[in-house]
Structure formats: structure tokens, C-alpha cells
Design a protein around this nucleic acid. Structure first.
Length: 865
RNA sequence: GAGCGAUUGGCGCAGUUGGUAGCGCGCUUCCUUCACACGGAAGAGGUCGUGGGUUCAAGUCCCGCAUCGCUCACCA
């Protein structure tokens, strides 16, 4: 126990208690002798290490921490790790700018490489000024920088007071993560769940990588309809189609209309010649063609959009793709273009970007008269990579996929069943998951043509001509893991066979970052590494996360768990809402309304910020106005109030408390508190931390404003058992309040706890109504406190109305109450007289609806004191 | 186009099985420094988006509509 300061304050509590918690291992996960039922495990979201933390992080991580602290106090051994998501594109970009390098996988590794820059000023370095380095050197820099970034994050999390066990941290690019990711992938391959396919793929031309459905977002883009005339080969005139992508005309393989469309029915099976290029293409029918769109007949290109892909696949059309990986038109015209004029036209767009090619095509079409009428400008949604800034294109590439139920009814049903089995908080978030699963359009594309990620652990044999045999991949021995196929050698080969006919080549692609993140329960829980730990924590109790990544992180984690173990990875999913600025817009960097969490914590104190976060329910968006952080100020006030109320309470003479709590008012207060404990506990169990806080806080203020005021006279200058009863009740209540508030304001509560108890409040037992009833006794008068509160308001009101100080003496006060209540009030009349400074207090039974002060006579001001 | 949320005093929110509308901020008036000025007391302020329905009784249940937000889908 420590001494109570004269002037308690919040400043400095973070440093003081943070150090003590660390030194004493307050939040350490103790596995010895535990069984699964004694453990509460949390699949913490690993923040992107190279990003920056924002208010939203503080918000949602606080939600989780309140649950962790509650469960810990209930006696659970809380497994609360922290991970860092440090692989992937964001890190690559940061490393490029920080060190002035870029990755060129064709270069050899340089031992002891020193980057041209260090530190950087955050500005982009032009690609031309970046020094090309080997993949291994690049990855080393990624690792170096993320370690530094992660240190900063950890400091912030510690200041915020997250009760994480820092011994349990992991990195998604760490060796253990690499091994687990590759092992899980190999298992997927062995079970036929992961496979390769050469197929049209959504492609980001800036990053030059394939992207998955889950990483797409629609953005409205200006575009325009161009009416193009196709010429019927039977000479019976033209067919006009509308297109927004005239630059893909050279890739046109057919025209398509709805099978029921009377206008085009007679034409199915006939052919037309494309404008400019003169390629003969068929007119085909497909139900996806919309009669009311454009002219009702569309051109199919390889590939303008995903519908083109469906048509191409289902109608067995040829592939005349003309877009390269760099987003430019390829140099060689498709074979189908055979006329001299056609080839000449193609030469004019070859090598051009989509944008320039479109301009050239429009000029040519206008010149030939095949572009009819006006170009009609429209705005329409276009698919983008969520991190990209150019529209996605579709190119044919070989990629790795993992089955996700899109084409496997049985798997999809199992995933939907798991969605129903999972307990969502709030429950309606389940619908988002179901929408996503039911809307999946293809298997999960997991290969990325990037560098800083988990390498896909395969090699391909080279045939006698030196061509890779992709459908016979060489898998690593499990003992080899983790492997980097671009530097490691498969069993049975030697390094000098790399790239040689009859030898092998390594896969250069890495996995989608979600392919690693989807294994966080396995990574953190010691899957295939520490079986004893894994059995203790898996399936996890809680997956906390944001609503925006249900389709990515939540879905992919659930999928991997289903594939690997056939079970849910967790029992509960707690989904936090957004932080909105005062205009109800989502906070974002570009809007310049992002506040740094470190500054917030510094300015207001961690408890205050936590209070703000915790006062919002799961799934509910919270607004935050940096200019006027009302909720934070209220939280600060609560924490300060607790310090002061505790100091006051602990200042009373406690020498006689052995007699227990005997006075009616004291018992009433404890009985009320017992109900609060029950209700708050129930709320916490239902993952409604905000309600637990509200219930506790609300009664805490009643405790301070009414009960404490009513009994302070008795506690301070009373005698014998009535005095001791007040002090005993105050101390018991304080102990309970401190524990109830500990999950929310861990610093102030720990400080207060140290004034009267041993150990950490965060390891103390969560209060129960039973302990309070044991002190208050059965059949306490639950409502007496609020009855007294009513009388007290009456007395105070009379003084306020007389513009007198609350300390003014009252010569006579007459309190009227219904007969039953009057009898109850008499039991605590002394307390009311004490706080009201009432010389003569009469409590009368009367025909009134509620407690009323019917008469009050104030003493003259000068008689005071 | 489909779905999911939200709509309660100026602002931010609560209202758990239907039973006479609550909290905080702000506002008004007052008090005060012997726990708390990062205080305290009293008070004003709402026909719960809208139109129907069920019920003795609806903020709460049912149906329609409106506005806002989000998710998914569509993308010639």
C-alpha cells in the first residue's frame, strides 16, 4: 500500500503504473496448470506496422482491452497477444522512400549493403533515383524499418494501457509466421484447396500485381458512351453498339445480345466486321446482356470488364488480349487483325496507355465515320484496387488460388453455417459476412507479384527446352520451412541447376498479405509449433476487429480455419464502429481531420481517452470532435472524481469497522450497488462494455452526490456503531467501484487501489453481488437511498431558492411522505438532518405522491458557523 | 437493384421482456474553496422522423414512406 497524496492527480500515472505492471508481469499469460476453460484468448488485430495509428485504433483496441481486463478479473487467464502486420505493400512503399531503394529480384544479394538514404523525410523518392537492390536486401530493409515502427506502436499501446502480454507478440513477416503460412499453404495444396490457374485476372497496372475480389472497391469515374458501327458481313447494313472502351476495339471477339431480344434474335449466328480493324466476329446470345442498356447489344472484348470474362468463358470465345502488365497496349496485333489498314491502325495504338489509345481510336473512328453521333459523357462505377489510383485492368496470368466456396457449394454452406454458429456483437454484423460469402464470384487469388511478403513455397521443374512445367510444382520438405524459392534450392537439385533446362526455377510470387493475416489464430497460438499452447487458446474466445474488414480478415481467417481444422477459429466476434468527425464523415487523412493518438493521450490522459472510447457500444459509430472532445473531458472528470472520493472515503476513522454495516441507509446503498454489480456483469458478459460503464458510472455519481454527502457527517463526527457502519459501507463501496471501473480507467483505479489494498486491482477479483449482500445483509431497504435522495433535493432546493449557501443552518424542516415512506425515512433522519444542517427535522406521513419538503425555515446567515 | 443500420430536448447519446420519457455537454440561476474550480446545488428545455396498424397501454411490436450512413451487386 502507498500513501495517499495531498492533492491526487492523474498526471504521471501512466508512467508510474506502466513501469510497475511491466516489472511485475501483471498481464502475463500464465499457462502452467491451466486448462482451456480457465483461458480467455483474444485474436488481436495486428495493426499495419508501417502505417500510422489513428483515433480509430485507440477506439477499437480500448473496447477489446476492457473485455480482457474484465475476463482477467473474473479469474480467467487472459491470452492477449499483439501482432504486427508488417508484410505487404504499405511496408514496401515506406521502405522505398525511407531508404531510397527499390526491389529488383533479378539482382544478387549484397552482403553488408548500406542504403543510399536513411531516415528520409517521408517524401516520395522518384523511381529513377531509387537504387535497385536484390529481393533479399530489400526484405532486410523492410524488416529493419518495421522493427523500428513497431517499437513506436508498442509505446503508444502501453501508454493507452492495453493489458497485452508483450511476451506474446508476433510479426506477420517473422520466421515463425513465414513457416506457418507456408506450412498452411502446403497443406492447402496437398488437400487440393490451393491450385494454380492461367486465367483473366484483375490487375493493378501501377503495382503490377494481381489483386483479389476482397481488395476491390468501386469508384465513380467519368466516362463516355461511344456509338460504334459494326458492319454486317451479309451487307445488310450496320449494327451500332455503345461502348465506353473504344480503345479495346482491337480486342473485340463478338457482339452479344439477350436471347429474348426481338431486335437481334434474327442476327444470332451471323457475323459482323469490326470498324477500323475489319475483324469478322459473331453475334451471340447471352442472358447477361441487358436489353435496356445502350443499344441492347454490346461488344465483347478480352477483357474490358468482368462480364467480358464471363462471356468469354461461357461462350468459348477466342482470346485477343491487347493489354500488357504495364497497362499499355501490346506491340503485336492479335492474329485476327490481318488487313493492312487494320495493322496500320493497330500500330498507332501499340505501346500507348489506355488513356492515349482511347484518344487515338476515337480520332480514327471519327475520321472513318464509324463513330456515330455525339460522344455522351457519363459517370459510372469502375473497379479499383483499394490501394491503387488507376482503374484495374484484366490480364491473363498464371496465379495461385485458394478455394473459398465460390465454386464449391458444400464449402460455401459450411462457411455460412460457421457464420451462424459464431456469436457476433452486434448480431447484425453477421449479415455482412453472409452477403459476402453469398456474393463470392471466384476463388481467392492469393499470389501477388510483389516482394515483401511470404514467398509461395514452390519451385517448377524446367523441361528439356527450359520451359517451366507449372502443373508439376516441386514442394519443399517440411523440415526446410520457411523457404525462399528464389534463393533456396529444392531437394534433389543444386543451385547451378537454377534456370537451366532440366533444372528448376523458383516461384517469385509472394502471398497476399491476407493469406498470412488469415492465420493470426495459428500464428499467435503456436499452431504446429507449441501444441500445448495451441490447445489452450484455440479456438479463440474473441476476434475483435473493424467492420470494414469482415470480407477480408474475418472471412479469410474463418476460411483457413475451416480448411485446416473444420472449426470456427473463435466463439465471438466483436465488431467496432467507425470514428466520425463532427460532420458525420469518416475520419480520413486526406480530409486533414486526423488527430494523433499520442497527442490525445498526452493532452487528456489515457483514462480520459479510454473513457471516451469505452462509452461507445460495439458496432456503433462514434463522433469525435478534436476541437471539443466532450466525452474525453467527462472521462477525465470521472477519473479525478474517483481519486478525490477515494481520498475522502479513506480519510475517515476506520477503527471500529469490525462491527459491520448495520445502518439502514448504508445497507440500502450497498444493496443498490449489488444490483449495479449484477447488471454490469451481465452487460460485460453480453459484450456490452458501454452499458457496464454507464451503469457503474451513473451509480458512482449517485454515491458521491447523495450517499457520501448524507453520511459524511456521521462518518466524520459520529460515534459508535453508526459511525463505524458508515465507514465500513464507504470502504466496501469504494473497493467495489474501483474494481468495476478498473477495465475502463486502469490508471486511476490502480492508483486508488494502492492506497488501501495489496497487489494490482487488475488482478483482483471482479466484484459480486454476493460479497455486498454478505456485508449489507439480506433484505436491505433497496429504495431507501433514492428516497433520501428525494428529501435531500428538497432541502437543497429550498436553500438554492433562497439563494443561500448549502451550509446554511435550518431551524425547522418538515418533510412529508406517504406513510410507508415516512417510516423508512425516519430510519435515516439523523443523516438527513446532518447534511442539511437541520436543527429540527419533522418527518410526517401525508397524502402526497412523493417525498416533499413542505416547510423549511432557514436560520439567519450571520448565525452560521 | 438487394440488404443492414440510424432517426429521441441546441449537441452527443441511453432507454434490456411494451406500463406515467432519462443521462452528459451546453444553457439559466445560485453556492463555494474544511475530498474534489479539472468543484458543488437547483432549474428550464422533448407530442421520441412520418403515415397507418396491433394493444387497456407503443420511443419500444407489425406494415408503408422519408432522410442519412454502410454493405453487397450491377458496371456494354
Amino acid at each position: 500500500m502507498s500513501a495517499i497524496p495531498d492533492k491526487p492527480q492523474l498526471e504521471g500515472l501512466e508512467e508510474k503504473w506502466g513501469a510497475i505492471w511491466e516489472a511485475q508481469g501483471t498481464y502475463r499469460f500464465e499457462r502452467e496448470g491451466a486448462d482451456r476453460d480457465a483461458v480467455y484468448s483474444i485474436d488481436t488485430p495486428p495493426p499495419t506496422a508501417s502505417g500510422s495509428l489513428h483515433v480509430g485504433h485507440v477506439f477499437s483496441y480500448t473496447h477489446t482491452d476492457t473485455v480482457a481486463r474484465f475476463q482477467r478479473m473474473r479469474g480467467k487467464r487472459v491470452f492477449y497477444p499483439m501482432g504486427w502486420d508488417d508484410n505487404g505493400l504499405p511496408t514496401e512503399r515506406r521502405v522505398q522512400n525511407y531508404y531510397g531503394v527499390r526491389c529488383d529480384p533479378s539482382l544478387p544479394y549484397v552482403d553488408g549493403f548500406v542504403p543510399p538514404h536513411e531516415g528520409g523525410d517521408g517524401k516520395s523518392i522518384k523511381a529513377a533515383d531509387q537504387q535497385p537492390i536484390s529481393r533479399r536486401n530489400f526484405i532486410e530493409l523492410c524488416e529493419r524499418l518495421t522493427v523500428e515502427d513497431e517499437k513506436q506502436f508498442e509505446d503508444l499501446w502501453r501508454t493507452l494501457g492495453l493489458s497485452v502480454d508483450w511476451a506474446q507478440s508476433y510479426r506477420t513477416i517473422g520466421q515463425e509466421s513465414l513457416r506457418a503460412s507456408q506450412l498452411a499453404f502446403i497443406r492447402n495444396v496437398e488437400r487440393g484447396e490451393a491450385y494454380q490457374a492461367q486465367a483473366p485476372t484483375l490487375w493493378d497496372v501501377t503495382f503490377r500485381t494481381a489483386v483479389a475480389q476482397a481488395e476491390l472497391e468501386d469508384r465513380d469515374q467519368p466516362s463516355a458512351y461511344h456509338a460504334l458501327a459494326f458492319h454486317r458481313t451479309d451487307g445488310a447494313g450496320d449494327i451500332v453498339i455503345d461502348t465506353t472502351r473504344p480503345e479495346l476495339l482491337a480486342a473485340c471477339v463478338a457482339l452479344v445480345a439477350h436471347p429474348d431480344d426481338e431486335r437481334y434474335k434474327p442476327l444470332f449466328g451471323s457475323t459482323v466486321r469490326t470498324p477500323i480493324f475489319g475483324v469478322e466476329v459473331p453475334i451471340v446470345a447471352h442472358h447477361l446482356a441487358q436489353q435496356d442498356k445502350g443499344t441492347g447489344i454490346a461488344m465483347i472484348c478480352t477483357f474490358g470488364d468482368v462480364t467480358d470474362v464471363i462471356w468469354w468463358r461461357e461462350l468459348n470465345l477466342p482470346n485477343r488480349a491487347i493489354l500488357g502488365f504495364d497497362g499499355r497496349i501490346v506491340s503485336e496485333a492479335p492474329e485476327a487483325i490481318s488487313t493492312e489498314a487494320g495493322l496500320e491502325a493497330f500500330a498507332q495504338i501499340a505501346g500507348k496507355t489506355v488513356f492515349s489509345a482511347k484518344q487515338v481510336m476515337v480520332e480514327m473512328l471519327q475520321a472513318s465515320g464509324e463513330l456515330q453521333g455525339e460522344i455522351r459523357k457519363i459517370t459510372h462505377p469502375v473497379k479499383f484496387f483499394e490501394k491503387g489510383d488507376k482503374p484495374l485492368e484484366i490480364v491473363s496470368t498464371r496465379q495461385w488460388y485458394i478455394k473459398n466456396g465460390a465454386r464449391d457449394e458444400a464449402l460455401r454452406e459450411r462457411l455460412l453455417a460457421h457464420g451462424k454458429e459464431l456469436e457476433w456483437h452486434p448480431d447484425f454484423m453477421r449479415v455482412r459476412y453472409e452477403n459476402w460469402v453469398e456474393g463470392l464470384s471466384g476463388d481467392w487469388l492469393i499470389s501477388r507479384q510483389r516482394f515483401f511478403g511470404v514467398p509461395i513455397p514452390v519451385w517448377y521443374p524446367l523441361d528439356a527446352d527450359g520451359n517451366p512445367v507449372f502443373d508439376q510444382p516441386i514442394m519443399p520438405e517440411l523440415s526446410q520451412l520457411p523457404v525462399d524459392p528464389s534463393s533456396d534450392v529444392p531437394a534433389g537439385f543444386t543451385e547451378d541447376q537454377r534456370g537451366v533446362a532440366g533444372g528448376f526455377q523458383g516461384e517469385v510470387d509472394v502471398m497476399d498479405t491476407w493469406a498470412t493475416s488469415s492465420l493470426t489464430p495459428q500464428l499467435a497460438g503456436g499452431w504446429e509449433r507449441d501444441q500445448e499452447l495451441y490447445d489452450l487458446v484455440f479456438p479463440f474466445d474473441l476476434r475483435p476487429q473493424g467492420q470494414d474488414i469482415i470480407r477480408t480478415w474475418l472471412f479469410s481467417t474463418l476460411l483457413r480455419s475451416e480448411l485446416e481444422s473444420g472449426t470456427l477459429p473463435w466463439r465471438h466476434a466483436g465488431i467496432s464502429g467507425w470514428i466520425l468527425d463532427p460532420d458525420r464523415k469518416k475520419m480520413s487523412k486526406s480530409k486533414g481531420n486526423v488527430v494523433t493518438p499520442a497527442g490525445m493521450l498526452q493532452q487528456h490522459g489515457s483514462d480520459a481517452v479510454r473513457y471516451w472510447a469505452a462509452s461507445a457500444k460495439l458496432g456503433t459509430d462514434a463522433s469525435f470532435d478534436p476541437q471539443n472532445p466532450t466525452q474525453i473531458k467527462i472521462g477525465r472528470r470521472l477519473a479525478i472524481k474517483l481519486l478525490n472520493a477515494a481520498k475522502f472515503t479513506l480519510g475517515f476513522d476506520a477503527s471500529g469497522v469490525g462491527g459491520g454495516v448495520t445502518e439502514a441507509l448504508d445497507r440500502s446503498m450497498l444493496a443498490s450497488l449489488a444490483k449495479v454489480v449484477d447488471d454490469a456483469t451481465r452487460a460485460f458478459e453480453a459484450y456490452d462494455h458501454a452499458r457496464a460503464l454507464e451503469l457503474t458510472e451513473s451509480f458512482f455519481w449517485t454515491f458521491c452526490d447523495d450517499y457520501l454527502e448524507l453520511v459524511k457527517e456521521r462518518a466524520h463526527s459520529g460515534e459508535g456503531q453508526p459511525q463505524a457502519s458508515a465507514v465500513a459501507a464507504l470502504r466496501e463501496a469504494l473497493s467495489v467501484f474501483v474494481r468495476l471501473l478498473a477495465p475502463f480507467i486502469p490508471y486511476a483505479t490502480e492508483e486508488v487501489w494502492s492506497w488501501f489494498a495489496e497487489g494490482s486491482v487488475h488482478q483482483a477479483q471482479w466484484p459480486t453481488s454476493a460479497e455486498l449482500i454478505a456485508v449489507a445483509g439480506e433484505e436491505a431497504d433497496l429504495g431507501l437511498l433514492s428516497l433520501m435522495g428525494g428529501a435531500l433535493i428538497g432541502v437543497r432546493g429550498a436553500k438554492t431558492a433562497a439563494k443561500a449557501s448549502q451550509k446554511t443552518q435550518v431551524e425547522l424542516a418538515v418533510v412529508q411522505a406517504p406513510e410507508v415512506d415516512a417510516a423508512r425515512l425516519r430510519l435515516a433522519a439523523e443523516d438527513l438532518a446532518g447534511v442539511g444542517r437541520i436543527t429540527e427535522l419533522r418527518i410526517e406521513a401525508a397524502d402526497v405522491a412523493a417525498v416533499t419538503v413542505s416547510e423549511i425555515v432557514l436560520a439567519q446567515a450571520e448565525t452560521e458557523g
